[in-house]
């Protein structure tokens, strides 16, 4: 749970950074997309360490494995919690749990559902709402985020993702043994907030900029 979750957070940070290349311009962003897939002139990322076009597939396999293991661990924990909780209290007060901590399970399912749409849209290109884009990832992103409700869907999705990370980040470190004192707890929670906010702002600033025509 903790290890795969941290891998996914690391991926999101890199992904967010990549998306920000939209602000530099079409050449930079399209080159980045080609470079990841090994289609750029220099042979792409890690070439010649790995053959052209291999990196993206290795990367995808690792990500997929992380996602599958993450969901498998979550399902196991959920099953155990359900088995251990055969009856519920008539009155139950919450003293410590945060909204994020309480919504990890259903929130995780919701954000995974939207991830499928996201991949169908930008990776498989089967769910492009704005229609064909002429082979330029830059044009594709501009097209999709020119639609106002698309930006709202992403804003809601990213809210689910970042709330998940707000609890997930600190919880992963606690599971790995870093919650060593009340001070450590405060630091970890502070970092979790920082990472969640950074990801939210970093991811959403580009679609918003597209919608308002600041990049076109």
């Amino acid at each position: 749970m903790a290890v795969t979750g941290l891998i996914l957070i690391a991926f999101l940070l890199v992904h967010m950074f990549g998306n920000l290349k939209m602000f530099i311009g079409p050449e930079a962003f399209n080159h980045y997309a080609e470079w990841l897939k090994g289609e750029s002139e220099d042979g792409g990322i890690l070439y010649p360490l790995v053959p052209k076009g291999w990196f993206i597939w290795i990367f995808r396999v690792v990500l997929l494995a992380a996602v599958v293991l993450h969901m498998y661990s979550a399902a196991t924990l959920w099953k155990r919690a359900l088995a251990a909780n055969p009856s519920t209290y008539a009155a139950k007060r919450k003293l410590a749990q945060t909204y994020s901590a309480r919504t990890m399970r259903w929130g995780g399912i919701i954000l995974a559902g939207l991830l499928i749409f996201h991949l169908a849209q930008f990776t498989v290109h089967a769910a492009l709402v704005a229609g064909p884009y002429g082979g330029s990832p830059y044009a594709m992103v501009i097209g999709e985020f020119g639609i106002w409700w698309m930006v709202i869907v992403y804003a809601i999705w990213m809210l689910a993702v970042c709330m998940h990370i707000r609890h997930g980040f600190w919880s992963a470190f606690a599971t790995l043994g870093a919650n060593t004192s009340a001070t450590a707890r405060a630091v970890l929670n502070g970092c979790a907030w920082a990472v969640a906010l950074l990801l939210y702002i970093g991811f959403m600033i580009m679609p918003v900029a597209v919608l308002f025509g600041w990049i076109h």
């Binding site: 196991t76 924990l77 155990r80 919690a81 088995a83 251990a84 909780n85 919450k94 003293l95 410590a96 749990q97 901590a101 309480r102 990890m104 609890h167 600190w170 919880s171 606690a174 599971t175 043994g177 870093a178 919650n179 060593t180 004192s181 009340a182 450590a184 707890r185």
Partner: peptide, 26 residues
């Protein structure tokens, strides 16, 4: 048959002996 910990923290709030939450990280 006890469930797995997901670091929610309700336990340490109700513990009459204030067993610190960080014992779980230990």
């Amino acid at each position: 048959g006890f469930g797995g910990c997901t670091n929610i923290g309700e336990c340490a709030e109700v513990c009459p002996k204030q067993i610190p939450f960080d014992t779980i990280s230990q």
